[in-house]
Amino acid sequence: MEFGFANVWRDGWVGAILQGAALTVAVGVLAMLMGLVIGTVFGLIKWRRVPVLEWAVDLYTTVVRGVPELLIIYLLFFSSVEFVTNVARAFGFADLAQGGFAFIVAVVAIGAIASAYATEVIRGALAAIPKGHVEAARALGLPGGRIFRRIIAPQMLRIAVPGLNNVWQTTIKDTALVSVTGLAELMRVSYVGAGSTRHPFIFYVIAAAVYLAITLISQTGFDLAERLLRLRQRG
């Protein structure tokens, strides 16, 4: 091959790829955090069977989990692009908005998808907590907030970790899809590199390797978390 890893290194693509990878991780982490917060709220709504809201959450998770991620990204991107451009132009920082805007849309879109999957995981974990624990806490007169913090959340977390690991793995891979909005994350950088050097193979192989590194490293992290939580249970 006349174009190899040496060229990628010499032409400064390595820096661009690393920056893209950092952006990928940033989008993934923020989306996952959003998914955890919304997923916990939605999961509690489903678990407590809050009237009306329960149906709204059901509709949300059914639609978001049943419709392709790409379609959701197009919906959020296209419907907000005009709005944001107008607002930004009115305040005179159109250029600044372009970069930040794609990032925000990416986090919101991927976070919305992660929320739907996290909701199901957390609802399942909540359902696995013995009813007697919550009843006992209530009988002791603990306030609702403390029951959640001391009784529900710790048990829920332990049961939910393997499921949340799956959500995270899916989320980090889903971030590749936001490259269609032009955000310069790992996939977009690889696409640009592939196009401008006319050597797509090496760029996509590098992208695949970086994604693999991210998923394998986080897998190890989750395995560790699972083991730590299990240890505490024993002690």
Partner: peptide, 23 residues
Amino acid sequence: STLFRGTPLLVQLFLFYYGLGEF
């Protein structure tokens, strides 16, 4: 299994569609 489940489908798709055409 590790390779295909550890990388995004989009990367696999582009690797086959754009990448292999290079050879």
